[in-house]
Design a protein around this nucleic acid. Structure first.
Length: 814
DNA sequence: TCATCTGACTTTCGG
DNA sequence: TCCGAAAGTCAG
């Protein structure tokens, strides 16, 4: 196919023009009836009918094992009638945890960690065994603890203004005649004021807990469960609900409703504790002991063998990490933390749901609103009511998570949740805690230089336009170009693209490019925009994100509908890759060169004794497309040209010139063309079963239909690439965390590129590890994934991100 | 009346 | 072509 033929399609409705054979194949797969209808989708979230529906669909999906729909074989569809009834009710913590551990990321992804699962399982069995023996014993212990707690609260020390431990007047006050029960219901126990024996007992309770529900408490008194305002307050401590084991009660499982079942999940031996994480004066011996104990509790929580439920678990891990101190490889201690996060679960179920609050989720999935006593009473609120609220919310959080777990299983998202999204939580937390150094001095210099250049360009623009106007205003520019100068009339054949909604003449880059020969203004505007973008976003924007000479992005795990990560403050994923050349402003002109090149990525520098190492997949999306479509030409392309760049190969074929004559611009053009075709042509789940609800496909509306189909394809390809990239992160992270010597830190993920900071001496060893892991991803047996096309991995290293040199593979690497 | 905030819109960077 | 973040203008 000639390149020109494809170029002609761009800007037109791809659906109406002839599609490539790949696109056609995928479209026909889509039309075979597996599209998720939004109506069905809504119904399935409301009721449990989905199980029946899935079962009904099974023969349809398995009919064509080679099609894209073959994931049915590992989906949730094969549910026995027994398991269906089980799933429609809430799962117990035990059930969830057995499930999590059986899908533990280590076991499925890191071969050498296989024993870990069995150890976990053994521990689980042992725990069960011990539980029976300790029943009486435990009861005795808790009695002691309770007594202690009460004596504590009468001491003047504990009635601190932050955390009063006075008895609250909760509703069960009257119905319980036992003093012990009352002491533990909805009452926070500040672990600082326990004596040594009680601390020992508490550790034991933690070890034996059936489940933990945690939330951060902030200085302003709010928690993660209620922070509608922008969070400025720092972490003060951690509130934790320790759930004890309940007698297995089969009747509670068969109950499909959650409202009434809430109380059933809790019993009187559940404990609420508070762990302070701030304000330790380390010259005070007593506070040193308190600090140590808090540390032990949190470390124990991290490697807890029961589920830890937390809303926004990443922030919890971050807080713990900051408490532990981020030096000497402390981050490795959070590596195998598994926290169940309802927000992530909800996002998997409906990725288009924009960042829901805890309240939103409770309303959506439990169908009730949270009664907030602190809001109805203005003015002075009793601290005990606040505490009580936290405790109630922790219970609700537990129920919410159990409900979401059941739903994840029903929708076939459980494996994705456990193997990909949950292990990512501590990884992102560690990434956020790591600071990337930035060359501040250089940035300030560049900022001044760019500012001067912008002034020059502004003056030039005003001069050639013959009037003053705001260059950054598209409205004013539109008026000048098309109102005053009437450039669109100078060329009759010119097609004037218009803006999306208002249908006004566009002033986009493409338009300005086409107007370049008619007037000097468009060219000046183009340069102004380029310089302005660099200055405002990459230089000044980055400077605004800096703290003590370094930056650290905030990573959002639930911000996209395709499953990709996103980053902000700064958005490190969006920083220009290619350096730009600008002509020097007059005031900066010396005797030397007239131009200066600026590479925004080069401003990120590795810390002393360390090197940046970047590992990226090459054209992973196209390779996945080749695999999923099975298109012979596409497959051949990747199987043959193992070493040569695919876009260069395509360009040389289309233009009929040797590969070495392909210019950068040609290659970029090809890339544009290829992705236009790719995204013009799917299925609605990624290779890992990630799903996206599509707008209802309406046969009458060609445009909407075409858009939905493009979204579908985009989702499959992008989502699958995101799956593989996340898997790479998890496996590499786990490998480093379990290594006694390696210290490499994951710094950023730019979709198909992973950026690490590595000790200089470990570069080649680490590079070999990374290459091995990334290349092994084309064959992940536990996921029944076997790509027909090889994955290609590029490695590069250097002292700054913008200046990385290709890295040869370490000789004779394992 | 003035300052500030918010949302819609456009553009440009990444993949 | 899709998916993002960010920065800017402008009207309300």
């Amino acid at each position: 196919v000639k390149m020109e033929d494809y170029e002609a399609f761009i800007g037109f409705d791809l659906y109406e023009t002839a599609l490539s054979s790949v696109a056609q194949k995928i479209l026909s797969a889509m039309r075979s009836g597996d599209l998720v209808d939004s109506k069905n989708w809504e119904e399935s979230t409301k009721t449990t009918k989905v199980t029946a529906k899935d079962k009904k669909n099974q023969p349809l999906e398995t009919k064509n094992p080679n099609s894209l729909t073959s994931r049915a074989s590992r989906g949730p569809i094969k549910l026995s009638s027994q398991s269906v009834t089980q799933l429609t009710g809430q799962m117990s913590a035990d059930q969830v945890w057995k499930s999590v551990t059986s899908l533990a990321p280590c076991s499925s992804l890191i071969p050498q960690c296989n024993q870990k699962t069995s150890v976990l399982q053994q521990m689980e069995q042992k725990r069960k065994h011990c539980l029976k023996e300790n029943m009486n014993n435990e009861h005795e212990q808790s009695m002691n603890l309770k007594r202690k707690n009460i004596t504590c609260s009468s001491s003047p020390e504990t009635t601190s203004k932050h955390m009063p431990l006075e008895k609250d007047s909760c509703e069960d006050d009257t119905c319980l005649n036992s003093e012990d029960s009352r002491a533990f219901r909805n009452q926070l126990c500040d672990v600082r004021y326990l004596d040594d024996l009680s601390k020992l007992q508490l550790m034991e309770v933690l070890n034996q807990a059936a489940g933990l529900v945690v939330t951060l408490l902030y200085k302003d008194g709010s928690t993660q469960l209620r922070d509608n305002q922008a969070r400025t307050s720092s972490v003060k401590g951690i509130v934790m609900l320790l759930k004890s084991h309940i007698e297995e009660d089969s009747s509670s499982l068969s109950s499909p409703t959650c409202g009434g079942a809430l109380e059933k999940n809790f019993n009187s031996t559940d404990r609420y504790i508070y762990i302070q994480t701030e304000h330790f004066f380390l010259w005070d011996q007593e506070q040193v002991a308190q600090h140590l104990f808090a540390r032990r509790m949190l470390l124990q929580t991290l490697k807890c063998k029961c589920p830890v439920i937390c809303f926004n678990a990443k922030n919890f891990v971050k807080a713990v990490l900051q408490f532990l101190g981020d030096d000497h490889g402390n981050w490795k201690q959070v590596a195998d933390f598994v926290g169940l996060d309802p927000r992530i679960a909800a996002w998997l179920i409906d990725p288009s749901d924009a960042i829901p609050s805890f309240e939103d989720l409770v309303a959506k999935y439990l169908g009730k609103s949270i009664v907030d006593k602190t809001r109805s009473t203005c003015g002075n609120i009793s601290q005990s009511i606040v505490n009580q609220n936290v405790c109630v919310n922790l219970k609700i959080l537990y129920s919410l998570m159990m409900d979401l777990c059941s739903k994840l299983k029903v929708y076939g998202l459980w494996q994705l949740f456990c193997t990909l999204e949950l292990p990512l939580i501590p990884i992102l937390a560690v990434m956020e805690n790591h600071k990337i150094q930035v060359n501040q001095e250089e940035m300030e210099k560049i900022s001044a230089l760019l500012g001067a250049r912008l002034k020059e360009l502004e003056q030039e623009a005003h001069f050639v336009a013959g009037e003053q106007f705001l260059i950054t205003s598209n409205n004013q520019l539109r008026e000048v170009l098309f109102g005053k100068l009437k450039l669109h009339l100078r060329n009759q054949r010119m097609h004037l693209p218009r803006t999306g909604l208002h249908q006004q003449p566009s002033t986009s880059e493409a338009v300005l490019n086409s107007l370049q020969d008619l007037h000097p203004l468009p060219k000046i505007i183009l340069e102004y925009r380029q310089v302005h973008k660099i200055k405002s976003t990459f230089i000044d924007g980055l400077l605004a994100c800096m703290k003590k000479g370094s930056v650290s992005s905030t990573w959002n795990q639930t911000g996209t509908v395709t499953g990709r990560l996103s980053a902000k403050h700064p958005n490190i994923q969006g920083i220009s890759k290619h350096p730009i050349q600008i002509s020097k402003p007059q005031t900066f002109k010396g005797k030397e060169e007239e131009t200066v090149t600026i590479s925004p990525r080069a401003l990120f520098v590795s810390s002393k004794g360390h090197t940046f190492l970047a590992a990226d997949f090459s054209q992973i999306e196209l390779r996945i497309l080749a695999h999923l479509s099975g298109d012979p030409e596409l497959l051949k392309l990747f199987q043959e040209s193992d070493r040569v760049d695919v876009f260069s190969t395509l360009t040389s074929q289309w233009k009929n010139i040797p590969v070495k004559h392909v210019t950068h611009a040609d290659r970029e053009q090809t890339k544009k063309v290829v992705y236009s075709v790719v995204y013009g042509a799917g299925y609605v789940t990624s290779i890992m079963g990630r799903r996206r609800p599509l707008p209802r496909i309406c046969a009458q509306n060609q445009q909407l239909r075409a858009q939905a189909e493009r979204q579908a394809v985009n989702f499959v390809v992008q989502g699958s690439a995101a799956d593989l990239c996340k898997m790479a992160m998890i496996r590499i992270f786990a490998a480093v965390a379990t290594s006694p010597t390696l210290t490499a830190r994951l710094v950023a993920q730019i979709h198909d590129e992973l950026l690490f900071e590595v000790e200089d001496t470990q570069v080649s060893e680490f590079a070999a590890l990374v290459r091995g892991i990334m290349e092994s991803l084309q064959q992940v047996q536990t996921l029944e994934l076997q790509l027909q096309v090889p994955l290609k991995v590029n490695l590069s290293a250097g002292p700054s991100w913008g200046d990385l040199a290709p890295l040869q593979e370490a000789p004779n690497s394992a």
